[in-house]
């Protein structure tokens, strides 16, 4: 239970950063932290206490195994997050070239 709570705390850290930070890079980091906490949450559901890896070998037959599906899902989700983070960083670089700053409060061409 404590693990899940700490995982939720990590999510809140990411959310807090997303809402309060003004620096583009810090916003990207917060978004990434939020993603990591989600992945951790997902992979925790596959965890079983005292269970082995989910590959059947002569040594571990009959033992409890961890659920391999969340692990496969998390791998996919990590790759997706990598793609989004790369895109965000590319956008941040372009924004820096246009405005000469990473401060989000100074980027004000859109309003209303």
């Amino acid at each position: 239970m404590i693990l899940y709570l700490m995982c939720f705390a990590l999510f809140l850290v990411g959310l807090y950063g997303l809402l309060t930070k003004r620096d583009l890079i810090k916003i990207i980091l917060s978004s990434a932290i939020m993603g990591y906490s989600t992945n951790l949450f997902l992979v925790l559901f596959g965890y079983r206490r005292d269970a082995t890896y989910a590959i059947l070998t002569p040594n571990n037959s009959g033992q409890a195994m961890v659920d391999p599906l969340p692990q496969a899902l998390v791998l996919t989700s990590i790759v997706i997050e990598l793609g989004i983070t790369a895109l965000l960083v590319a956008l941040a670089i372009r924004l820096y070239q246009k405005y000469g700053t990473f401060d989000i409060t100074k980027m004000r061409s859109l309003k209303g």
Binding site: F11, G14, L15, L18, L24, I27, S31, M34, G35, S37, T38, N39, F41, L42, F45, P70, L73, S77, I80, E81, I84, L87, L88, L91, A92, R94, L95, K98, Y99, M107, S109, L110
Partner: peptide, 27 residues
């Protein structure tokens, strides 16, 4: 253009947040 990068950044951040929420719901 500058405004397009800005809009795209905003969209990507919001999209990332909603995807996290959806992933938690899926988990």
């Amino acid at each position: 253009r500058a405004e397009e990068y800005e809009a795209s950044f905003k969209y990507a951040i919001m999209g990332g947040f909603s995807s996290s929420v959806i992933l938690i719901a899926i988990a």
